[in-house]
Design a protein around this nucleic acid. Structure first.
Lengths: 127, 127
DNA sequence: ATAAAACTTTGAGTGCACTCGAAGTCAAGG
DNA sequence: CCTTGACTTCGAGTGCACTCAAAGTTTTAT
């Protein structure tokens, strides 16, 4: 059911995804697209709605601090189909745990800095 | 009262701070040390307890995602003395806010991924 | 005394994730 | 048609934060 799919140019795709055209091409070169982005007769890229959605998911992974290389591993698993579901789940969960630890570290550092802020605020005659 | 201060070699400083000797020299070159690290007659670095403590603070700033350039700005303010206390406070607070926002973004992305995990977990074996 | 290990400086190299440039092709308005 | 601007590929450049190399000096252990 990909009937009424309106494809878009790379510029439009950039607008929809919030990435630059450079980054969209870069992701494609890096093997992050689930399926090849199809082309107009002119060889210009035509992004389908599914492509846009997929890029949205990639962006989620990147926003969650997953390195490009690991995103690619994940994508490779997805392309291998259902047999890799468990592996994918495991990967996401492990990543989740490691990021949570990282966030914890950052929070701790922020807390230490807060202590510094508190000291300044006091000393600063701000009561 | 910095009487019984036992200074240490760069190797020992590395051990105490958890940074590499490379990084310690790099931080120094980058102008991040509050005061010049003093040298033995051999020109080998001798890290004082204060130096170690300062590096610990630098590490807190870095752990809280503050870029080197901004850390340097901060250090420059510290060297200018008490007159800059307000500016420093402001800087730390602003940084705190921006990092909090960043952590929020990351958390949101993680939450979205969690949804994906939930889907996988439920129908363990569907696209 | 001598060999090995640790230290010094300075410049260069690495890895990541883009980001840009060049040279050319294609599309849309006047 | 013709120009202007968007698009193509692919290699190169950027910025950050280290990380390492080379060549020489100093310290430590034997």
């Amino acid at each position: 059911m990909k009937s009424v799919e309106h494809s878009m140019s790379i510029a439009e795709a950039a607008e929809h995804t919030g990435l630059s055209t450079h980054t969209l091409r870069y992701y494609e070169r890096a093997g992050l697209m689930l399926t090849p982005v199809d082309r107009a007769s002119s060889r210009h890229r035509r992004y389908s709605d599914d492509d846009i959605e997929w890029v949205g998911f990639l962006t989620k992974l990147r926003s969650a601090l997953m390195p490009i290389a690991q995103v690619r591993e994940y994508v490779d698993l997805v392309r291998l189909g259902e047999a890799t579901t468990a592996a994918r789940l495991d990967m996401l969960q492990r990543h989740r745990v490691s990021v949570a630890a990282k966030l914890d570290d950052i929070s701790q550092a922020l807390t230490a800095i807060d202590a510094k802020i508190a000291i300044y605020s006091k000393r600063n005659g701000n009561e």
